[in-house]
């Protein structure tokens, strides 16, 4: 491959970069709040809810994200096929029938659902660790000052948890940048899929390297951002 070919590859990948970034951004924005909810469910005093949450976390962390993507993506077509066979005719199957699985939007939503379910499980464990690392003395001091449970959590505990979970969260976000490449498994048009296709066109491995450079630059930016955030929280120990 000559320089012009590489430039051409880079330009094509650049066209599909927004797809990669869209998946990254939606996953990040949704999985953090979902992770908070999962933490809360796991710490729920009503045991069955806590057990179910544990099971969910176990499955999400215990199986490959790639399998989860495939499972979520094919779940609806399979349910539809099952419905046709059994001749069921209720509102649920009517609703399923309206979904067009070849639609770009459907594919993207399935991906975001799979990514968010998976990442929320990891984030939940990070947040739980953060909450449990706050010394009991902080709760005792808050109660001594007459603060309510809500005040204690939002004004005393949470700000300290945020600082403590930043390093682990930055790890997770860096992995997420790279994990977006798994979306190629259902032929979502992101940069890994495109570079694989160009590898065939050019009979060369260079397009993969170009994709690698794209991921590397994205993660360099993520790293710099987290260094900045960590610094922001450095005003106390």
């Amino acid at each position: 491959m000559n320089f012009d070919d590489i430039k051409n590859v880079a330009e094509i990948l650049l066209q599909y970069l927004p797809n990669t970034l869209k998946l990254f951004a939606w996953t990040l924005v949704l999985s953090i709040p979902v992770g908070v909810i999962v933490t809360w469910l796991k710490k729920c005093r009503f045991k069955p809810i806590s057990w179910l949450t544990n099971l969910y976390i176990l499955i999400m962390r215990g199986t490959p994200l790639m399998l989860q993507i495939i499972a979520v993506y094919y779940a609806i077509p399979m349910l539809m096929a099952g419905a046709r066979k059994s001749g069921a005719d209720n509102w649920f199957y009517t609703l399923l029938g309206k979904i067009n699985t070849r639609d770009e939007n459907y594919m993207f939503i399935a991906l975001v659902v799979a990514f968010v379910l998976n990442y929320a499980a990891y984030f939940a464990e990070i947040f739980r660790g953060g909450i449990e690392s706050i010394p009991v003395g902080q709760y005792e001091a808050s109660s001594m000052l007459g603060m309510t449970k809500m005040q204690t959590f939002f004004r005393i505990i949470l700000p300290q948890v945020v600082k403590r979970v930043i390093p682990a969260t930055s790890n997770e976000v860096i992995v997420l940048v790279k994990d977006t490449s798994l979306a190629n498994v259902i032929a979502f048009a992101e940069i890994t899929l495109k570079s694989k296709q160009m590898m065939n066109t050019y009979s060369s491995i260079v397009p993969l390297f170009v994709a690698g450079v794209f991921y590397f630059i994205m993660n360099a930016i993520v790293t710099v951002a987290f260094v900045y955030i960590e610094k922001k929280f450095n005003y106390y120990k």
């Binding site: 010394p135 003395g137 001091a141 001594m144 700000p159 300290q160 600082k163 120990k237």
Partner: peptide, 19 residues
């Protein structure tokens, strides 16, 4: 709660809010 506010407490390891 009323009683809580009548009692002040100083801890062995201070338990100040670090943030």
């Amino acid at each position: 709660r009323q009683i809580r506010l009548k009692i002040g407490l100083v801890f062995q390891n201070f338990n100040l809010f670090p943030h």
